[in-house]
Structures are given as C-alpha cells and as structure tokens.
Design a protein around this nucleic acid. Sequence first.
DNA 1: GCTTGTCTTGCAAACCTTTTGCATGTGTAT
DNA 2: ATACACATGCAAAAGGTTTGCAAGACAAGC
Lengths: 147, 147
Amino acid sequence: MARTKVSLDSLRGLLRAAGLRSTAPRVAVLQHLQGCSVPLSHGEFVAALASHGYDAATIYRNLIDLEGAGFVGRVNLGDNVWRFELRGTTGDSHAKGEHPHFVCLQCGEITCLADVRVKLSPAPGSVKSVVSTISDIVLKGQCTRCA
Amino acid sequence: MARTKVSLDSLRGLLRAAGLRSTAPRVAVLQHLQGCSVPLSHGEFVAALASHGYDAATIYRNLIDLEGAGFVGRVNLGDNVWRFELRGTTGDSHAKGEHPHFVCLQCGEITCLADVRVKLSPAPGSVKSVVSTISDIVLKGQCTRCA
DNA sequence: GCTTGTCTTGCAAACCTTTTGCATGTGTAT
DNA sequence: ATACACATGCAAAAGGTTTGCAAGACAAGC
C-alpha cells in the first residue's frame, strides 16, 4: 500500500486550513493515520502512540475532530468498535474517496476493497423507493485464508 | 411485510427440536421476533417485553441462544448495538436467508433489502484473492425521505 | 516579544451495551 | 413423582464511548 506521506509542515497547514490548531497529539494522530492501510480502532491508536504519553481521551477527541474536518472516516465493522482511516483530502490513493470494507468473520481480518465497485440489482423496484444514495459499504464473510 | 405467524405450539416444537427448552421468556422473544420487519436491538426487546417482567439478561441470553440455534441472525448496523431478526427456519418470506441491510445515516431508519442482489466488480483481481464468501452486507447512506 | 482569548489537553468519571457468576427455580425425561 | 440439567433473576464486571472541568498551550494582535 504505497503511501505518499505528507510532510509535517503540510500536515500543519492542512489542519489550520480546516480551522483546527496544530497541536502535538493531533499531528501525531494524523501522521500515524498515514501509515495505515486499514481502519484502526481508538484503542490501537492509543497503543501505537503510547510512547508519546498522550491521554486516551485526547486521542479520541482528535479522531472525532479529524472526522468532523473531513480528514478521516469513521466506520463500524460490526464488532462494536469505531475504526478510523484517512479519507480524501490528504492526497493518497488508498484514502481517495470511500471504499467498501471486508471483514472476515472467522479471523477478523479487515480489508479495504479499494477498487471494487458494488452494484445492486433492485429486483422489484423496492430498493429505489428507499435508498437514495449509498456512502458506506461493509461486507462480511470468510476470507480466502480461512476458507 | 406479510408474516405468517407460527402457532405457539409449533414454536415450542421448533425450540425443542433445536434442543432448547420451551420456556416462557424464550417463547415470548421468539414470538415477538415474528412481528418485526427489521432487526431489533436487545434494548428494544427488553422494552417490548417489559410487561412480562423478564430479566434483561435472560432476554439477552435467549437472543444469543436463538442465534446459536439458527433461529435468528445477529447484525451490527454500525451504531455499536447488536440487532436481531428472524432467520430461515421459521418459514417466512422476510426471514428466508440473509439479505442486505440499509441504514439511513441521517434519520437512522433501518431497511431490509430482502430481494436485492449485490454484485461486486472485482476490478484488478484484488478482491478474489481476499474474499472467499460473503454472508453479510450492510449499506449506509441516505434514504429517499431524507434526500 | 508579550498578552489575551480560545481551543486543547489531562485526569477522572459517567454512560451504555454487552457479558458473566452464582444461587435459585423450572422444564423434561425417566 | 423424582432427579438433573438447563434457564432465570439479580447483581456486577467489562469494554468502549463520551463528557465535565480546571489547567495548559496555540495563534492572533498589540
């Protein structure tokens, strides 16, 4: 998952452009986000940034703030835990726009289906009468390694 | 959502056939399940059956048991709450097999896409190398009423 | 460079739903 | 009718998500 990291200064600029102050914890979260190919949970962020000594609540609030600013997307893959991943703005092939996520119910592995298109076959018109737009897709099943 | 309710006695028979005892709380949960067109949360069951005075933990365990027996499916629509719905066995058009669920991110309404087929376009083979089988699909977006 | 006002951080605790332990009670087979 | 395994109730532990509040840090302006 080749990721073109954005420089620290650009990151700061992006934050301020979004009306957010560029604080150490916030930049660290955003920076860590850049190195991940799948959405991470709050707990994983806390563990990953433990060496910095940032408070868990601070990291949590930053994730929420970054979501509000459009930098990250928040998804729930079905295990009652929020996961966050980079989205759009920060110029990155993986983060560009939304993409479906796949979760293996057996091993729990999470995969981003970056280039996959999903098409619905609206059998008897029923779908169109309810669904206007789809912005998030989660697929669950069994991965090839567990099959 | 025309639902052909199964008689109380048949219900009892089904339970016992599955190796579960037919107790009052269990039958009540299963019975309530039959009247629902969308998956309900544990809390909603507790509220709906409050008049019976059943313990919340009992209802919870029954839902899990019924899942284990294959009577109900448990889905997580993304709000960190388990929801349960009838599945298969109990002879019902809505419950027959799995179906995708749609959640409106704005109003929160949940819809079962009973007759919808979902097709993936596995762009560059990437998908097939990870996904073996898909058993659960959750779509999120905006419903027509909120559009 | 220093001051000020506002946004953030830390720490602690509240909340909610999900889960589990354990003694008591009940369905079922014998 | 009896006995045993399964279920129920009640209470509380867990795990993650959220929020309150006082102290601290960023960024703008003097």
